[in-house]
């Protein structure tokens, strides 16, 4: 029997995402914040130079974080560490893989490096998570090798409305594909601009082939529970924790609300006295060109 281990298989890539389910992944910019997140019960941290709200405020080109920051965060916690690279920027991805990052986010939060192609994620040993607003976008990313999907929402706004829109769109389209007759799947693949084999998989199983988290605008325990009740597998919280009045308490509260998303008594208890939530932005106040969710093709 060949006992040689095989690394970087699809099963170990999607498997890590399975282990993160029911959990909260928190954006952090320092090792201290990473430790706060770990102590609060985060299942992973996203290491960044700036949280989305600050990226939005700063403007200009947003890039991969400085390797010094990423390495410091990798060295500070025992939970998995994720990091973001620009859409299409496969060299940033190579760098982050070499730093020992556990999951890469090819993310619309950063300024895209390629307006036509995403990264060929099959080339990497490290798994990728990618954003999507609908089923077609999700299946295109999975076709390129993404092992985990997150609905995009609108990052850095503290406004959950886009996250809800994208999750509902995804679920509606999955239900639509599941209800088609098999000869209609070729047309569906064309409409969704997605690989036929993956459309067929969704038709047969009635779900995405990989774990689907929710992201972009989650700021309160009730927001997190809302997304879980709508059917996501877990949540990313970006600016919502460390841009709030009491990050320690809010982080813990969002973790509990994500586990007990169906228990309003728990959500009520953990929602008390959390201090100020991050200041929200109405989506209609954001000019089209500054909407991060439009990035990705």
């Amino acid at each position: 029997m060949n006992e040689n281990p095989t690394t970087g298989t699809l099963r170990v890539k999607t498997g890590l995402a399975e282990m993160l389910k029911g959990g909260v992944i928190m954006d952090v910019v320092t090792p201290e914040q990473a430790k706060i997140a770990e102590d609060a019960g985060a299942v992973a941290v996203m290491s960044l130079e700036r949280v989305p709200a600050d990226i939005r405020a700063a403007g200009g080109v947003a890039r991969m974080a400085d390797p010094t920051i990423v390495e410091a965060i990798v060295g500070s916690v025992s939970i998995p560490v994720m990091a973001k690279c620009r859409i299409g920027h496969f060299v940033e991805a190579q760098v982050l893989q070499s730093l020992g990052v556990d999951y890469l986010d090819e993310s619309e939060v950063l300024t895209p490096a390629d307006e036509e192609y995403h990264i060929d994620k099959w080339d990497f040993t490290v798994p990728f998570v990618c954003g999507a607003r609908n089923l077609g976008e999700a299946l295109r990313r999975i076709g390129e090798g993404a092992a985990m999907i997150r609905t995009k929402g609108e990052p850095g706004t503290g406004n959950v409305v886009e996250a809800v829109r994208h999750m509902r769109t995804m679920l509606d389209e999955i239900a639509w594909v599941a209800g088609l007759r098999s000869e209609q799947l070729f047309g569906a693949a064309k409409d969704l601009q997605a690989p036929y084999e993956l459309v067929k998989w969704v038709h047969e199983h009635g779900t995405l082939p990989v774990v689907n988290f929710s992201a972009g605008g989650i700021a309160t325990p009730a927001d997190a529970a809302l997304m879980m009740q709508l059917g996501c597998d877990g949540v990313f919280v970006g600016s919502g924790i460390f841009k709030s009045g009491d990050p320690v308490k809010r982080a813990r509260a969002i973790v509990e609300a994500t586990t007990h998303y169906n228990d309003p008594d728990v959500i009520a208890r953990v929602s008390r006295d959390l201090g100020e939530a991050m200041v929200g932005i109405n989506i209609s106040d954001i000019p089209d060109a500054e909407r991060m969710q439009e990035r990705g093709w």
């Binding site: 029997m1 281990p5 095989t6 690394t7 298989t9 170990v12 890590l16 020992g100 798994p127």
Partner: peptide
């Protein structure tokens, strides 16, 4: 022993007796 094999890039599949 926790995280005994390293980071995610070291995660693997292997047949077991």
């Amino acid at each position: 022993q926790r995280n005994a094999y390293g980071r995610q890039v070291d995660s693997f599949e292997a047949p077991l007796h």
